[in-house]
């Protein structure tokens, strides 16, 4: 009996410490020192919140970089992958559809040059990054649609490449939101 009461007291005391005080302490530090990160790395354009640096979103304009395919249609309130197994015929069908989409948008790309990351769905459905090769393959289309020079876009890719941490961990890659914001800003400046 003593142990039951002690167990209940332990549960209440530790639920409050671990389930309320601890998250609130992290919240305090986070909101005070790193408010941008703590609130989801949201980015503003034209005084509107347009998305998060860390979360992919559906891109419908051909003049912007496309993120990786998403099994959840970029639903940032319902993340997930396709969970299709490697031998599932549905996987091959999905990849085929993605290849056709890429070919339609970028008519001159030889199929064998398409990287797998460009046509296979990400794990979260919200992968904010693409590989260098993926970005390079999209340059001609974006240049054609927007009128921006290929040279400028190549420089943009070079400048915005995210390199592996400490030169060791990860792969060179590009954040789609960062690229697209740069394009939008450039287009806006050239209009003015």
């Amino acid at each position: 009996m003593v142990n039951i009461i002690r167990s209940i007291r332990f549960t209440i005391v530790f639920a409050v410490i671990l389930g309320i005080f601890y998250p609130l302490a992290v919240l305090g530090i986070g909101q005070w020192f790193f408010p941008w990160q703590a609130n989801g790395s949201l980015v503003t354009f034209h005084h509107h919140k347009v998305g998060s640096m860390l979360i992919a979103q559906a891109v419908n304009q051909p003049g912007l970089f496309q993120p990786r395919p998403s099994a959840v249609q970029y639903n940032a309130d319902g993340s997930g992958g396709s969970n299709l197994g490697p031998t599932n015929p549905a996987l091959l069908k999905e990849i085929q559809q993605n290849i056709q989409k890429i070919e339609k948008q970028n008519p001159n790309i030889p199929i064998q040059e398409i990287p797998t990351s460009m046509v296979e769905s990400s794990a979260s459905g919200l992968d904010p990054d693409i590989t260098l090769r993926d970005a390079q393959l999209q340059i001609s289309r974006i240049a054609q649609v927007t009128g921006l020079s290929k040279n400028w876009l190549e420089q943009l890719i070079k400048k915005d490449t995210i390199h592996p941490t400490f030169g060791i961990w990860g792969v060179p890659m590009l954040n789609v939101m960062q690229l697209n914001l740069a394009i939008e800003k450039k287009l806006q400046n050239s209009k003015e």
Partner: peptide, 30 residues
């Protein structure tokens, strides 16, 4: 604390609702 600094959210505000570059509405859970 290190994770927050590197980009992991810590907030009690509900999901963020944004209007994407393509003009869609995206609900971002956090």
């Amino acid at each position: 604390c290190v994770l927050v600094a590197l980009g992991v959210p810590e907030t009690l505000q509900g999901a963020a609702i944004v209007h994407t570059l393509s003009g869609d509405v995206q609900v971002i859970a956090r």
